[in-house]
Design a binder for these strands. Structure first.
Lengths: 333, 333
DNA sequence: CTGAAAGCGCTAACAC
DNA sequence: GTGTTAGCGCTTTCAG
């Protein structure tokens, strides 16, 4: 029933070795037998089993991509750009959602690697760094991180300069005359520099950041909404909120509307990521843009290099974010 | 270097069969040797090779998911719901983007199946139906379609009732007194019933639908924007637009804003899908909601059933859409 | 130019 | 309770 290399060999009246050779364009075979084999493959509708081939050492021309949550537009865009560049280079990509959950990370890691992908892109925060390390060191799987970092690991990494991004956002708000600025951050590593930069900028401006002006939560619109609600009901309510990603910012906008606060007149909001959301919200979101397209392309290229030959030095590429000013921020009256 | 079942066996001083048995909880082994093996596995940091196991007939507990474009929030949500239900049931999911491209469909199909996934969910429009058919019939791969249909194939399918959805949208606009209603549809099968229902409702109301009131395009905000621009510059400009998905609708809103048309007073807009976008746009979008969560859960359950034993009858489940009225539609002055 | 044979890592009879 | 062995579908020396 199942058509494999044997069926084809039988049909063509040759050995399986010969079939393998025509499949892989290796060795040399006469034009005549090549045709015979091709015809047999066609007739039986043969598809080579990539997994079995890779078991024997062949490349799969596929890479794996681990993201925390594909329904976050930022990661969807990252996935898009990686897919595009990979496709140009002749590679397929298989994506998996980790939800920043250690168990899922583990499961998908072993699933993906035993599927014998040729390389792995990790966009997930990754709690279990030892697993990744083992994979790189012991198993020699090429790995590149994108939009996530693991400082203690020597690993190729591409991120935006999160510190600079945070600083950009804070400075913008400060330059608009805001003094009571709150921040909503996601509880992942990439948000730490954003928060640090924010605090730093505030300190430079001689402004306090009360504890209750700092909220940490998950990257969900709903969470942004809840956090903003809490912030907006403080006695000393902030006049501006820096939301560490667009999802959160979208939630902030909803909360403000519910309270009949006009954005940007009663409340300024800046987001981060410059995803679709930032142009569909109203007012459109002032946000810090990550060069997603470039990051995706670069990560794929780096991975390919690493696949060619593991290099002794790992790169750590920091791309510059840009502030995109739209309509969600205004100067204090 | 590579740690496999042999290394573990050697380390534990047993045979590979014994190791296999403790891994799979099959046969019976004494508590003592079990411990020994477990200890060896732990010491060597052994991970079983799922691909090799499946080559020998074992299940992988993984399913594949083919979507057209994960950066469309609708598919991201579909993926989310499938991931969630699968995870509850102990399955992993590997997603791939086809971009409705025949070559990619082919590549990913053979990649996924030779990775020996236990089943496949297809949310992609799928041009190459013969490939799917062969996979089902000849190779016996359990397949379920979600939010996409292939009428001529006998295959498990879960979709929303697109006809009803289109009818709901059109009727709503009609009941608001609109007479000049345009439609922007995506050029895929699922949009055909939406368009047909729209025409039907218009006809019932005795209203004409001029050819230039029907635009077909791709599911991209940008395309929605362009289409709307075109529609809005007609001499007889429509007073309402039915955009066949939220992405398109978001584009329409942008175009209207650019032209200083107020929504819903100068132009009513209804979308389809009820994705995140519909609550972040302003005004919030009146849209037709698909029960994504239920659809995702159901598709997984159906797939599991099919995996247990291929049933002679295939199901075709049509879920009811619902009209969600928000602020982007109003009655004609 | 073609084929026989070994083996990738694993599971599942079947012996012992 | 444990081990031997025969493959799963494929690639790759190495002979002929």
């Amino acid at each position: 029933m199942k058509v494999n290399i044997h069926s084809v060999a039988r049909e063509a009246g040759v050995s399986i070795a010969t079939v393998s050779k025509v499949i892989n364009h290796t060795g040399s075979i006469s034009e005549q037998t090549r045709k015979k084999v091709l015809a047999a493959m066609d007739k039986l509708n043969y598809h080579r089993d990539i997994a079995a081939a890779s078991l024997r050492g062949k490349r799969t021309n596929a890479i794996g991509l681990l993201v925390p949550d594909i329904s976050n537009p930022f990661y969807a865009d990252i996935a898009r750009s990686i897919e595009d560049r990979s496709h140009e280079l002749g590679f397929s990509v298989m994506m998996c959602n980790t939800d920043n959950d250690t168990d899922k990370e583990k499961t998908y890691l072993s699933l993906l690697t035993s599927q014998r992908i040729d390389g792995l892109v990790v966009a997930s925060a990754f709690r279990s760094t030892d697993l990744l390390e083992e994979l790189m060191e012991k198993q020699g799987v090429p790995i590149v991180l994108i939009a996530s970092e693991i400082p203690k690991l020597s690993i190729n990494t591409i991120t935006v300069d999160d510190y600079k991004g945070g600083y950009l956002a804070a400075s913008h708000l400060l330059s608009l005359g805001h003094k009571r600025i709150a921040i909503i951050a996601e509880n992942v590593r990439s948000n730490e520099p954003r928060l640090a930069a924010f605090k730093h900028a505030m300190q430079e401006a001689g402004l306090p950041v009360p504890d209750d002006y700092i909220v940490k939560t998950e990257a969900l619109i709903q969470k942004g909404y809840e956090s903003a609600k809490q912030l907006l009901s403080l006695k000393e309510r902030p006049t501006a909120i820096f939301a560490c990603n667009d999802l959160l910012a979208a939630g902030v906008i909803q909360a403000a509307k519910e309270r009949d606060l006009s954005i940007p007149y009663d409340l300024s909001v800046v987001g981060f990521d410059n995803t679709v959301l930032s142009t569909t919200t109203s007012p459109m979101l002032t946000t810090v843009s990550q060069p997603i397209k470039e990051m995706g392309a670069k990560v794929v290229e780096l991975l390919m290099q690493e696949m060619e030959a593991s290099r002794p030095y790992k790169e750590r590429l920091l791309l510059s974010p840009k502030l995109i000013v739209r309509q969600s921020t205004a100067s204090l009256p």
